[in-house]
């Protein structure tokens, strides 16, 4: 087990090297003038200066190899340039927005994965009967419903009519407290910070604002996990070892849990990893509908405004996330499937 994890970690630098080379290659499509934004620290630098001089200063007229090394050094130091659309350094923009995305993803992932697995096994256990049909209809509707429709419906019902779950990340009063000196921002995730500060009013307020987007995302992604779980369970159900389990006289409940579900979860881990990655990259539409300022909105705005520095910076960040999530998925694999562990 330890060896397996170590080997995975040791292979990380190779993956990262490949990823950065790829991004660097794509950067060559941009002119040095366009790339300049990724190098400067503030727009002040541009004032009354000839861009050609700056290009020379940052070595953008040097050979490719030299430029790559220089760029990597910048990336490692977190110097990702100035974002015009966010009006702050790219690094700060990402650090300001990512906690919101991370918080939303963490809140959405738990109901999606557990709910999806439960729905999937329920459907599989009632294969081709009413329970199966209803579950599948429920899930397919969620999957087919565009999130701008689903999100607006949630907003309309739970905010417009019931007034329970407002948009935004916090109410105005709570926002004032959070930005004041008495409140320490440990992580940028308001629910977690509220607990760390012992401020329960803020916690409930943050939670109230999270439920709307979480619900929208969960309903969207349930079908994804549910369908994989269902088909994988149906596949596993007819395996010989399930019959062996029954032949021991085990109750059906134990057979389903230890023989069917634990084997059926292996493919679910893969797709769940992909889903988490999608959520961490930001969910533009849901963030827009709920005015929930996360990474997705940042990237979308940057792209719209041709803010090269921010686009490059978020791309780099996203690749970094991808590598980390893949590592976690690989490690989880070893936990669910002993055959992977010992290869």
């Amino acid at each position: 087990m330890f060896n397996y994890i170590l080997r995975r970690i040791l292979s990380l630098p190779v993956v990262i090297l490949g990823v950065t080379l790829l991004i660097f290659l794509m950067m060559q499509l941009l002119s040095p003038y366009q790339l300049l934004a990724s190098y400067i620290r503030s727009p002040e630098e541009l004032k009354n200066k000839d861009p050609d001089v700056l290009i020379h200063t940052y070595g953008l007229d040097r050979p490719a190899g030299e430029r790559y090394v220089k760029w990597i050094q910048n990336v490692i130091r977190g110097d990702l340039g100035w974002s015009n659309s966010a009006n702050m350094p790219v690094k700060e923009a990402i650090l300001a927005r990512f906690p919101a995305t991370l918080e939303l993803a963490l809140f959405a992932v738990i109901p999606v994965i557990f709910g999806g697995i439960l729905l999937g096994s329920f459907a599989a256990m009632h294969h081709n009967r009413w329970g199966d049909h209803l579950t599948r209809i429920f899930a397919i509707v969620g999957w087919s419903l565009p999130s701008f429709v689903g999100g607006l419906l949630v907003l309309m019902i739970f905010y417009g009519v019931l007034g329970w779950f407002p948009p935004g990340r916090l109410s105005t009063w709570a926002y004032q407290i959070v930005t004041s000196d008495q409140f320490v921002n440990y992580t940028g995730m308001y629910t977690l910070d509220a607990i760390l500060n012992g401020n329960w009013a803020i916690f409930w307020d943050a939670l109230r604002h999270l439920i709307g987007p979480t619900l929208t995302l969960a309903y969207l992604w349930w079908a994804f996990i549910m369908r994989i779980t269902r088909s994988s369970m149906l596949d596993t159900m007819n395996k010989d070892y399930v019959r062996t389990g029954r032949s021991k006289g085990l109750p059906e409940r134990v057979v389903v849990k230890k023989y069917i579900r634990s084997n059926a979860l292996i493919p679910v881990v893969t797709v769940a990893g992909l889903m988490v990655l999608g959520l961490l990259g930001g969910v533009v539409i849901v963030e827009t509908v709920f005015d929930f300022k996360g990474l997705g909105l940042l990237t979308a705005t940057a792209a719209q405004q041709l803010d090269y520095a921010a686009v490059l910076g978020t791309t780099m960040f996203y690749c970094f996330l991808l590598v980390i999530v893949n590592l976690i998925v690989d490690i989880l694999y070893a936990f669910v499937d002993p055959r992977v562990r010992l290869e």
Binding site: K239, D240, T244, S247, G249, L250, K258, S262, N263, P338
Partner: peptide, 25 residues
């Protein structure tokens, strides 16, 4: 029936390669 299965009457199957649960020792 479950108290008979495995306790009074046991069964061995044809395919040893697929008759054991792969995720438990």
């Amino acid at each position: 029936m479950r108290s008979i299965r495995g306790k009074e009457i046991s069964m061995i199957f044809q395919e040893p390669m697929t008759s054991l649960n792969p995720v438990y020792t």
